[in-house]
């Protein structure tokens, strides 16, 4: 029996996610898998992602994993990371492709020619450690307000339903960097690369028992 399935659809650095989960849950069995049956049987599912959204959607379908991910996102503790957050929405401006539509809203690109308050150019991708202003969801337990997490992305989510928003960050305008609904929690940053704060979030996810 696999406790935690990390969905492998051929994109991104899944090893990092696996290593970080092993670190916070040394006794759990963690499987990086592209087998829909293992995903269906796992008690928790992590849906990571790196790269371009059109490629991620295509690879997910090529491996026949769409239904397994949709089912997991509806019925067991589920964590989306980076593109794994973006894919949950209805549509992405990256490649103008539809997403999985688990959450309503869209994925849009940071504007070009962004400037900070001092007039310095803000680069895209938004890359590095930014402060996360979080809500009161149980997964934030033990994580300081405005703790820094590691981001690397050029697109961000715009949920239509404001009640799903669980955190925001600023670049320079506020953008949503975490959402939650029922058994689902998803983040734009990389908890597996965010040192102590990231490991704490993953640990909280491992211990999470949503009703």
């Amino acid at each position: 029996m696999v406790d935690i399935a990390v969905v492998d659809y051929g994109m991104g650095n899944l090893r990092s996610v696996q290593q970080a989960v092993r670190k916070v849950a040394p006794n759990a069995s963690v499987s990086v898998t592209d087998d829909a049956k293992i995903i269906a049987a796992a008690s928790r599912v992590i849906f990571p992602g790196q790269g371009a959204m059109p490629d991620c959607m295509r690879e997910l379908d090529a491996r026949g994993l769409r239904q397994a991910v949709l089912d997991a996102a509806r019925n067991k503790p589920f964590m989306g990371i980076c593109i794994g957050l973006q894919m949950l929405f209805e549509h992405s401006a990256e490649g103008d492709v539809p997403g999985l539509g688990v959450l309503s809203g869209e994925v849009v690109r940071f504007a070009s020619e962004l400037k900070d308050a001092q007039g310095n150019k803000l680069k895209v991708p938004h890359m590095g450690w930014n402060q996360v202003h979080h809500g009161d969801h149980v997964l934030w337990e033990g994580i300081e307000q405005d703790a820094r997490f590691y981001f690397v992305h050029s697109y961000y989510v715009r949920p239509r339903d404001a009640t799903v928003v669980q955190a925001s960050s600023d670049y320079p305008q506020p953008f949503v960097c975490a959402v939650a609904r029922d058994n689902l929690f998803a983040v734009q940053f990389h908890p597996e690369k965010s040192a102590a704060a990231g490991l704490k979030l993953l640990q909280n996810f491992i211990n999470w028992n949503p009703v």
Binding site: N13, R15, S16, Q19, Y150, K193
Partner: peptide, 28 residues
């Protein structure tokens, strides 16, 4: 990568896409 949970960049001698893949798989 088993012990340090911050981003790791690796360079040197990368000649083909397969080299990129191998380094990412190692934990870069």
């Amino acid at each position: 990568a088993e012990q340090v949970f911050i981003p790791l960049t690796v360079g040197g001698g990368v000649r083909e896409v397969q080299d990129v893949r191998n380094l990412l798989n190692a934990g870069a």
